[in-house]
Amino acid sequence: MGNSSKDDSANSGDASPGDVPPSDTSTYSEGEKVLAYHGPRIYEAKVQKAEIRKNEWRYFVHYLGWNKNWDEWVGESRLMKLTEENVVKQRSVDKKQGADKNVKSGRSNQAKAKSSTDAKVDKEDVKNNVSKGKKRKIDSGVEKGSGTVEKHVKIQIPAPLKKQLVDDWDFINQQDKLVKLPRSPTVDEILTKYLDYKSKKDSTGADSTGEVLKGIRCYFDKALPMMLLYKKERKQCSEAVVDNISPSTIYGAEHLLRLFVKLPELLAYVNIEEETLNRLQQKLLDFLKFLQKNQNTFFLSAYDGTKVSEGKGKGRDE
């Protein structure tokens, strides 16, 4: 809802008030990721251009994950800094909008005015958080969330595999054990087995299945050291993955299954049409069922406990 930006800035007393010329530097810089109001909702967006027009800063924004057709010029009052607190706000607005669809435009106005003042406070909060030792980059949480939530893949992991994941957690974090490497079958072998199994059943879909499996392998190799390891496994990994060896030729089903927990976040970076996304979801689910069916042969029933003494007390702190 394109309420004229002047009203808002007058209310909030925050952004450039009407007749005073704007400062030389814009509040938002080109390339900066921001949160932007579009209608009653808040979306993640990127500032493409910033210009002074009619004595006001105007920003050309692209809504992330949305078609370029939606790109538009907006005033400062439509934007918020991308902070964790503002993202929380974004989510709560999302919820509210979901709850009742007949929102009066007045409400979004209020929310707008309020949030632009809050934005300043939020910045302080975030700073405090950071100094407490949370090294997390401010916008890292946002990339995942954003206004495209509805389009995210949902991967319902079958219950027996969920239990597998909990056992996996327990072995490593509670019992101080590790998965002995290299595993057999490896991730690569499991993927190949699945492709064989699928091509026998239905050769026409094999090509697209193959592409998806390659995608999984590619994600796995990149994601393993970055996000699929518990802290206690890091040392083992740095010893096992050397000389450009692909993790998918060493690790097995235990770690592959963890990837599926993270998969929705990764796939959120790819813009995929809804119908195709549904098909992809089916394919991923089918693969999980295959893992489940072979749970006894693919997954370890007991982890390796020999490294207990070595691993203890180490890596407590970083």
């Binding site: 980059k137 916008d139 890292s140 990339e143 995942k144 219950a159 969920k162 994941l165 909990v166 957690w169 990149k222 994601a223 050291p225 970055m226 996000m227 699929l228 390891l229 518990y230 802290k231 963890r258 927990v261 993270k262 976040e265 990764l266 970076y269």
Partner: peptide, 22 residues
């Protein structure tokens, strides 16, 4: 892609630890 250039420990979402019927 921030999440792939920044090492982060794996953590299993809380929902996994809730006992599920069925």
């Amino acid at each position: 892609i921030e999440m792939l250039n920044h090492e982060e420990d794996f953590s299993l979402p809380q929902s996994y630890f809730v006992k599920e019927e069925s």
